[in-house]
């Protein structure tokens, strides 16, 4: 699905990603872990096409296409979804209105007709049930005055609506209590299929108790220093990040 080769990126001349290699196939769940400042969120942002970051080397192929050549909205229209670590507030625009605009833009890009109000509402009801979100939240201004849990749940709801091929969850667990975490993880698990893939970016192992990864990669100083299966995450939880740092220092 996506093939990342030697990806390098910087922000304001500061090198953050120093050669990332990663291959994700349909049906897989990958976890990217690492200490603060290792470049996890940068990787997520670069894949989504955030302009603040400059790609200085390497390549990203997505379904055979050069991903780095696409505008952020084109990437989204082609099935890449980023659940934000800090979802943005848009006053006066309800989630419902926001999603209606988004879905119809995506449909337009595929040459499909816009969803009418009836069918849109039907779709919304179905997805609301899936991620257990309340109608009243969706009528409020997007993310304005939402609690941390509400924001993250809203992200998963949007993900359910847009049915992405590749979902990237950027620190979706941060700021969540255990109940909210379960609900969010439950939503992600329900959305999983053999045709889509999920990349979970997280600092802590606890989210991975609920979203079980097929692969775990450890990112440190802009490079993937170690890859393994879900046991690597448990090992990390036990030992902390220090042994990774020590190991890296030896190289």
């Amino acid at each position: 699905m996506i093939s990342i080769k030697n990806l390098q990126a910087s922000i304001k001349d500061k090198k953050i990603l120093k050669g990332i290699d990663l291959e994700v196939k349909a049906g897989e769940v990958h976890a990217i872990m690492g200490p603060n400042g290792s470049g996890k969120s940068t990787l997520a942002s670069v894949l989504a096409g955030r302009e603040d970051y400059e790609v200085t080397g390497g390549s990203v192929e997505y379904f055979g296409e050069d991903l780095l050549d696409l505008d952020p909205e084109e990437r989204s229209q082609k099935g890449i979804f980023l659940a934000f670590q800090y979802p943005v507030e848009i006053p006066g625009v309800s989630t419902t209105n926001f999603m209606k605009t988004a879905i119809n833009k995506v449909r337009e890009s595929r040459g499909e007709k816009a969803l009418d109000a009836v069918n849109f509402l039907k779709l919304m009801k179905e997805k609301m049930k899936l991620v257990d979100i309340d109608q009243s939240l969706l009528s409020r201004s997007l993310n304005e005055g939402f609690s941390g849990g509400e924001k993250k749940r809203n992200e998963i709801f949007q993900m359910a609506m847009l049915e992405p091929k590749l979902a990237i969850l950027d620190e979706t667990d941060s700021g969540l209590d255990i109940d909210a975490l379960k609900i969010v993880a439950d939503g992600v698990n329900k959305l999983k299929s053999k045709d889509n893939a999920t990349v979970v970016v997280t600092h802590y192992q606890r989210l991975l108790n609920y979203i079980v990864p097929d692969f775990v990669h450890i990112l440190y100083k802009g490079k993937i220093v170690r890859s393994g299966d879900k046991n690597l995450a448990s090992e990390l939880e036990e030992k902390g990040y220090d042994w990774i740092k020590e190991e890296a220092a030896l190289v």
């Binding site: 603040d52 909205e73 209105n97």
Partner: peptide, 29 residues
């Protein structure tokens, strides 16, 4: 904010539409 526009773009909404959406939200009352 650029982050507002990027957020919209990440959901498949192009920049022009994003601005219209944000402005209409601002003026909604």
């Amino acid at each position: 904010g650029e982050d507002q526009i990027f957020y919209c773009q990440q959901r498949g909404i192009d920049e022009e539409t994003a601005v219209a959406l944000i402005v209409n939200g601002f003026a909604k009352e």
